[in-house]
């Protein structure tokens, strides 16, 4: 994959919106274009988190293996979103399985490459961290809302006369 081809496409990904050209070039040097067919796993729980993905097309489901309850789907991610941040935090292992519900097109960013660049270029490292913090914050907020089970009055608890 030629990196100069990717620079232009990466630029259009919402995660990298308004990022300096220079930093995008740095990122591009760690990036590749990937496709996962429907039904494939992008990664599994417990594996080394060697990549993260900027999704361009298709849908990925995050699943937790809950033994007797089978695979539980926690969330789906789609075009324009970021998949994976376990590469960022030691010991760099995936906590969930990522399943391609539909054929997925994505930019795969090599984590080792990215960590090295972040260590040497703190400006780049800070910019990545800043953007990831935003994603983390939004996803935490969504998780909290999901936790509230806002439509859940009917199951389990019965409410009184309306």
């Amino acid at each position: 994959m030629q990196s100069h081809d990717l620079t232009g496409s990466l630029h259009n990904h919402p995660f990298l919106k308004d990022m300096d050209q220079e930093l995008i070039s740095t990122l591009t040097s760690c990036a590749s274009n990937v496709v996962f067919l429907e039904g494939r796993y992008l990664f599994h729980e417990g594996e080394d988190a060697k990549t993260f993905y900027l999704l361009r097309a298709g849908r990925v489901a995050l699943e937790a293996g809950a033994s007797e309850r089978g695979q539980i789907r926690i969330q789906t991610l789609g075009p324009g979103e970021v998949l994976g941040w376990s590469w960022l935090i030691a010991p760099y292992r995936w906590h969930f399985d990522a399943y391609a519900v539909e054929q997925v097109h994505a930019f795969a960013i090599d984590a080792t490459c990215l960590r090295e660049k972040s260590e040497t270029d703190w400006h780049f490292g800070y910019e990545m961290l800043r953007r990831f913090s935003e994603v983390l914050e939004r996803r935490l907020e969504a998780t909290r809302l999901q936790l509230l089970d806002v439509y859940g009055t009917s199951r389990g608890e019965k409410s009184e006369k309306f």
């Binding site: 489901a61 699943e63 969330q75 789609g78 519900v101 999901q146």
Partner: peptide, 8 residues
């Protein structure tokens, strides 16, 4: 797993 749509 039978649901192909969005989850979230």
């Amino acid at each position: 797993s039978s649901w192909k749509g969005h989850i979230g």
